[in-house]
């Protein structure tokens, strides 16, 4: 019982980590958003799990039942779901614009193009002899 009492939370933790890993490790911008939504959905699980009471029923009052699960986490998660979809929608809009501006949604391609822009600024500022500074700067970043 001691271990089984927490198994639900451990599954939630594993799901969260999968989502979180996708967000950080993947380079495709859409995949990152998918990972983010998996991460968030798993957090929802965590909230909902703590509201559950064994043997209880959904918190819609009725004379037939006496034990209800806790409604507060449900309310919080309803809010969080809305926030999640709002973030996803905005993120997707950004991805679409990034595709239009860069022609790619791979982080690496975008970084290469940005680095190129940066280099041009540097050439304009100091002339070709500025390469030492650029090396140092990359290390700082």
């Amino acid at each position: 019982m001691n271990i089984l009492g927490l198994y639900n939370y451990w599954i939630v933790v594993v799901l969260m980590l999968i989502g979180f890993y996708i967000v950080i490790a993947h380079e495709n911008l859409i995949k990152k958003l998918v990972g983010l939504s998996i991460f968030q959905t798993s957090v929802f699980f965590f909230y909902i799990s703590m509201g559950k009471i064994t043997g209880a029923t959904a918190p819609i009052l009725d004379e037939k039942y006496e034990l209800y699960s806790n409604p507060l986490p449900h309310v919080l998660i309803l809010t969080a779901i809305v926030v999640g979809i709002a973030t996803t929608a905005l993120g997707l809009a950004l991805v679409v614009r990034i595709q239009e501006a860069y022609g790619s949604i791979e982080e690496r391609d975008i970084q290469e193009q940005d680095a190129h822009d940066q280099l041009e600024c540097q050439l304009e500022a100091y002339g070709p002899s500025s390469m030492e500074i650029s090396d140092e700067q990359e290390q700082d970043e």
Binding site: T41, F44, P59, S69, H74, I77, I81, G84, I85, T88
Partner: peptide
Amino acid sequence: DLDAVDVAFTEASVGAGIS
């Protein structure tokens, strides 16, 4: 299954649907 009917409803329409 965890008694969160409203949340289930929303997740189905938002997560599986709109999103």
